[in-house]
Every structure is written in structure tokens, then in C-alpha cells.
């Protein structure tokens, strides 16, 4: 009986001393945590895609709280998240544009042909490295879906031989752009729909041989454009999305209809 009492007392005393020590040390070496960081982190989507340029949502939250990253730094969350983060940080959110991946190739099975059958690893990069050009066009979509394989949101698919982006699902993380061996994918604002769906830099007659929808570099679009937003470089037209006013005159005139027209209404 006595032993039990002594043990209980001893443990209580030791516990009290250690506890007091811990409280003291805890106060002395306290790390200041910005409460806003945790709050910002809670508002971020949390899929750690890295599209913001930081090593995940935690890192972005820390950077936002430290004032190093803008409150609209998360391209995935877009406007709604930016507003919430701005409220936490006590600033007003700037306008955020929703961006999405865009495939600069229209080479579906109707407009261009494959030559040969590829047997091997089902991966565009492996196929390109095998030295085979599977499609007639050397610049176009290979269609084996390396982009689809890396997409975290299931937003890009190979449809009829060419990759197609679901802009609603796309979070503009850019992983597909990195995976594409032909460098066909760019990240552009969703609101700016007018864009050239081709990456072929060959001269017109060569393009015509391989694809009925390829940009032939005729410069008709450049002449139509009133806002100087479209230029032909290396036999390929490209739209400057900052300057484009979405009038759609270039798309109307394009002889091969490779420029997407602006959204109706």
C-alpha cells in the first residue's frame, strides 16, 4: 500500500516539474506563426499542382502571408479564391483571368493522315524518340496522349487523333505543355478565344501536302487585323492575346479556317 502511495506522489512531482519546464521552454522559444497563413491555406484548393510556381499550396500560402506572392496567385482557384484570400489579407483582389491549356494543332483524322502504324510504348515522347513521324505533318499532334496521362484533372483527351482540352476542367497547371514532345500546348486566357490552331512552320505548299487545315503563312489575317494583334513568323501565324480585341475578322478570312472564331454573343 505504502509503495503505491510513494510511487503516485513521485510521478506527480516529476510530472509537475517536467510540465513546468516544457511550458517555460515553449514560451521562450516560441515561433511566431502568422495566423493568416493557415487561413489562406484553408482557402486554397489543396491539390498541390504547383501551377502557381510554388512547391504546393502550403508554400503559396506562406508566400502570400509573407507578402511575396499576389493574393490572386492561385490560377486554379481563380476569382472566387482570390477574393477570399484578399479578404484574409485585407486587400482587394485584382482581376484574375481564367486560363486554360490550348492545343495549337487541328490535325484530326479528317484533315491529315497517319503514315505507318506505331507499335511500341504508348507514349508520344517514346514514339517521337523512336525517330518515326507518325503523322504526315512533322509538327502536329502525335495523338498517343502523353498530355492526357499527366493531367491531374482529366481535362485533356485525345479525340479523333488530336488532343482536345476541356476548358471547364482545365486548371492551367501546364503539366501537359511540359509533356508534349512537339511543344504544341500553350496556356492562354479562356476569354481570348481567337487563336491559331496550328504549329507547322513549313512553307505553304509543303503544309498543303500534309494537312488540309494547316496554317500556310499567307498573312491574310495580318492584313485584316486592325489592332496589330496577329503576326506571321516563320510561316506561322500567332495571336498576341493582350492586343486581340476578339473581332474575328482574321478567322473569317482565313482560307484554311485554322483560326478559331470568337465566341458568339
Amino acid at each position: 500500500m505504502q509503495i503505491i502511495i510513494i510511487t503516485t506522489i513521485a510521478i506527480t512531482v516529476i510530472g509537475a516539474i517536467v510540465g513546468a519546464g516544457l511550458v517555460f521552454i515553449g514560451n521562450k522559444y516560441k515561433v511566431e506563426v502568422d495566423e493568416r497563413e493557415a487561413a489562406v491555406r484553408a482557402e486554397l484548393p489543396g491539390n498541390n499542382c504547383g501551377a502557381c510556381g510554388y512547391a504546393g499550396c502550403d508554400a503559396l500560402a506562406a508566400a502570400v502571408a509573407a507578402g511575396e506572392a499576389p493574393v490572386n496567385g492561385c490560377p486554379v482557384g481563380g476569382g472566387p479564391v482570390a477574393e477570399k484570400v484578399a479578404a484574409i489579407m485585407g486587400v482587394t483582389a485584382g482581376a484574375t483571368e481564367k486560363k486554360a491549356a490550348f492545343v495549337r494543332c487541328k490535325g484530326s483524322c479528317e484533315v491529315t493522315k497517319n503514315h505507318g502504324t506505331y507499335v511500341g510504348i504508348r507514349d508520344c515522347r517514346a514514339a517521337v524518340n523512336a525517330g518515326l513521324s507518325l503523322t504526315e505533318c512533322d509538327y502536329g499532334c502525335v495523338g498517343l496522349g502523353s498530355c492526357a496521362a499527366v493531367c491531374p484533372e482529366n481535362a485533356i483527351h485525345v479525340v479523333n487523333g488530336v488532343a482536345v482540352v476541356d476548358e471547364g476542367k482545365c486548371i492551367a497547371c501546364g503539366l501537359c505543355a511540359k509533356a508534349c514532345p512537339k511543344h504544341l500546348i500553350e496556356i492562354k486566357p479562356v476569354a481570348k478565344r481567337v487563336a491559331v490552331q496550328c504549329s507547322n512552320r513549313d512553307k505553304g505548299p509543303v503544309v498543303k501536302q500534309v494537312c488540309t487545315a494547316g496554317c500556310i503563312g499567307c498573312s491574310l489575317c495580318v492584313r485584316q487585323c486592325e489592332s496589330d494583334a496577329i503576326a506571321v513568323e516563320g510561316n506561322l501565324a500567332h495571336v498576341d492575346y493582350d492586343k486581340c480585341i476578339q473581332c474575328g475578322k482574321c478567322a473569317e478570312k482565313c482560307p484554311v479556317k485554322v483560326i478559331l472564331p470568337p465566341r458568339q454573343g
Binding site: G120, I121, D123, R125, A126, N129, A130
Partner: peptide, 13 residues
């Protein structure tokens, strides 16, 4: 397994 093709690709990249 397509080992050689994997290595060719790996080396190229």
C-alpha cells in the same frame, strides 16, 4: 517488356 525502347527514350531525354 520494351526495355530497350525505354532506355532509348530515357537517354534521349
Amino acid at each position: 517488356r520494351p526495355l530497350t525502347q525505354i532506355f532509348k527514350q530515357a537517354k534521349a531525354e
